[in-house]
Structures are given as C-alpha cells and as structure tokens.
Design a protein around this nucleic acid. Structure first.
Lengths: 99, 99
DNA sequence: AATAATGTTCGTAATTTTGCGAACATTAAA
DNA sequence: TTTAATGTTCGCAAAATTACGAACATTATT
C-alpha cells in the first residue's frame, strides 16, 4: 500500500483547508475579510496583538492554501477572499457534514 | 490588549475543530466513522497505512477536540461521532461561510 | 496460569509551526 | 535625495506535531 497516494485528492484538499484555518489568528483574518470582502494588511496589524512579521506569515499561509489573494495597491496590499477556492472549501466541508 | 483573551470563544473553538481535522488521517477517520456511524480502532488499523500507535494518537486528538468518543467493549473500543460537538462544529463552520 | 487480542502509553527523533526583531525592498512624499 | 509608510524576508529559538517501535495494560480464551 503506497502511503503517498493512499488518501484521495479530496481528503488531502480538505486537510489542507482545515490546516490553513487551524489557528485563531487565521480564523480572525478570514472572518474579518469576509465581513468587508477585502482589507489591507495594515488594518489587521492595527487590530491583532501580534507583530507584523508574524501577521505576514499567517497571511502567507492563507495565500498558499489558496483561501485569500493579495492585490498590490502600492504601497499597500489589498487582501481579498479567493472566491473560487472559498466556494470549493465550502463544498468540501458541506460534503464532510453531509449537509 | 491582553493577548490571551483577544479572540472570542467561538474563534478559538473554530480553530480547535479545524486543527483536529487538519490531517488526512483524521479526515479519513471522521469520514469513515460518519459513514458507519461507529467503528473499532482495529477496523481503521487494518485499512490505514500507519502504525497502531500513530493511529491511537490521531484518535486521541479527535477525542480531545471532542469530535469523537470511545466506548469500551472489551477488549475493543467502539468509536463514534460525538454528535453534540459535531453539530456544534457544523454550526460554527456554517457561520464562517455565512451559509 | 499462560497465551492471544486489542489498544494505549512511553521514549525518541525528525519535521513543522509559531513568533519575534532586525534587515530589507518598494514606492510616495517632503 | 532623504524620509516615511507599508510589508516581506531572514535568522533564530521555543514549542507542537508527526511517526515509530517497544513496553505495558486489560480482558478473553485455552
């Protein structure tokens, strides 16, 4: 049994999305962005009790998981939900719950 | 700003549930249990390409997060979904997606 | 009492995550 | 050309996660 492809793509994708959301800071960010549809890193930096480098890392993880995307509006960066993947995550989670 | 209670209980709870599901093995286990409503650790051990000690740890994490519960049927242990918390997770996730 | 069946816990190691400050890059403004 | 504003990346350290085999615990069976 090959350990590398034992799990389905869906299972791996679900785990990836869950992992991206497995931290209160990242849950907060996603909720914050959801409410405003978009936001700037500075908005978050003003609110969250973490350093800007740490915040940058959390944003990077959400980006790598495909849940958000950044658009450069120099000198700022505007972060928005990656709608396509957000809908995919929603679909996978619904499927998990058999909703 | 007190870093320890910056996040809401809901945000912390969401992160905790997400974290519990942030691994393909645990996604698999939850889906497997969901389909059968319950299962024995041995059933999973026969299927999953991991050692029984590793499996035991994953089950422990799901238990600690409150997503499953074990009932002793010596010499086996019967694992089932923790329905109450599973519904709570479902509610929180729905809320996150504004479904 | 000895053996088998089923899982958990312990000890260990490798890897990943989390977090920070300092340094850096980029562009706008003075 | 400085200086300010906005973020990212680097280097480091502490903590958590992942994984395994060996040892252990519990109960059923011989």
């Amino acid at each position: 049994m090959n350990k590398n492809n034992f799990f389905t793509e869906e299972q791996n994708q679900k785990a990836k999305f869950f992992k991206a959301l497995a931290h209160p800071v990242r849950v907060f960010i996603i909720e914050f962005i959801s409410n405003q549809s978009c936001c700037y890193s500075g908005d978050l930096s003003n609110i969250l009790p973490i350093s800007k480098s740490t915040l940058s890392q959390h944003l990077k993880e959400l980006k790598n998981a495909g849940l958000i995307q950044g658009e450069i509006k120099t000198p700022k960066i505007k972060y928005c939900l990656n709608v396509e993947n957000w809908l995919l995550a929603q679909k996978l989670f619904k499927n998990l719950f058999k909703i």
